[in-house]
């Protein structure tokens, strides 16, 4: 999974897509910097290298769709709401936090978006939501982001069984970054994700590209099928550029290098330098300004009821 998968030129994106990609990238880099300076409490899991997954899916998911995210969910949230202020305030425990600072990085609920910090737990819940949508709001779907490591949890299989059996509009997006915290996928998974989906009669689609336009084109008809109550597992072969959380990366240098070689950020900069550098500078400065502004806010308040 650490091979260089895609050496083709990345297609040109609209400014809005590139800005969103860069927003997630600089947001995550800023978090690591803030943690490094001891300005954040607890821990965080950045999605560096994986930003293009939720950005690709963004226009394919509507406001009626439910999204379930996981511990590595900042990109998922930003692709849904473009609200870096609220998310950073949540992570920093400042006024304007999405969840008052109670949930923090990995427990966020806003409208039809919900993240939890326990692996696999959200799949059965998403199945329940999909059951509701199928009956009450046909055409809407429940999308769940999980990782390769999540497939170690039995809840995944119980939920896949239900999704197939009950024909639920459930979209499972797997961000297979080849490593679960410190454990390589090869050391924790027998067989394959495709084989596991097949066992339940659930369609599986593999995405190896990092080209947002190309991914969207390939997924669009498949997502439409999900809306027609055909559950789907989409497996992105992706790369986690950063550590699992912060400063806990024990991967060999060549594995980290392979992740860097596949990084859309560097590749896009090479392929479209003018657009890239114009927006990169802009977004970097914007994130800096957001961080300064949010850090200066008063502490968040928990309005218990």
């Amino acid at each position: 999974m650490t091979e260089t998968l895609d050496r083709l030129r990345l297609s040109r994106l609209g400014d809005d897509d590139l800005e969103l990609l860069l927003l997630v990238r600089h947001f995550e880099l800023k978090l690591l910097e803030l943690y490094g300076r001891g300005e954040l409490n607890g821990t965080t899991h950045t999605c560096l290298g994986q930003e293009y997954v939720p950005v690709s899916l963004r226009p394919l998911l509507g406001e009626h769709d439910h999204i379930f995210s996981n511990h590595r969910g900042h990109g998922h949230y930003l692709a849904r709401f473009a609200d870096p202020h609220g998310l950073l305030a949540e992570i920093m425990g400042r006024e304007g936090a999405v969840c008052g600072g109670v949930g923090g990085s990995q427990h966020i609920h806003r409208d039809r978006y919900l993240s939890t910090g326990v692996q696999g737990e959200s799949l059965p819940v998403a199945a329940g939501v999909a059951l509701h949508l199928k009956r009450a709001e046909p055409g809407a779907l429940a999308c769940v982001y999980i990782g390769d490591g999540t497939w170690g949890e039995g809840a995944v299989y119980e939920a896949l069984n239900l999704a197939s059996l009950w024909r639920l509009p459930l979209l499972v997006v797997v961000e297979n970054n080849g490593i679960a915290q410190s454990t390589p996928t090869t050391s924790q998974m027998a067989g394959s994700i495709a084989g596991r989906a097949a066992a339940f009669g659930v369609k599986h689609h593999l995405v190896v590209s990092t080209d947002v336009n190309e991914i969207r084109t390939s997924l669009e008809p498949l997502v439409t099928e999900v809306r027609d109550c055909r559950p789907l597992v989409v497996e992105f072969v992706t790369h986690r550029l950063g550590p699992h959380s912060k400063g806990d990366d024990i991967r060999p240098a060549d594995a980290v290098q392979a992740a860097r070689d596949n990084d859309w950020y560097v590749r896009y900069a090479n392929d479209h330098p003018d657009q890239f550098h114009r927006l990169d500078r802009l977004v970097r400065a914007e994130v800096q300004a957001i961080a300064d502004e949010v850090a200066a806010r008063p502490l968040s308040r928990w309005e218990e009821s």
Partner: peptide, 28 residues
């Protein structure tokens, strides 16, 4: 019919499904 649902032997999942139904405004 339709509101009484027989499930597989999956206590975790059926409880999760109940939570998902409750999350979307139903009584489970």
């Amino acid at each position: 019919p339709g509101r009484v649902i027989g499930t597989p032997i999956s206590e975790g999942a059926l409880t999760g499904v109940a939570a998902g139904l409750a999350l979307t405004g139903n009584t489970a």
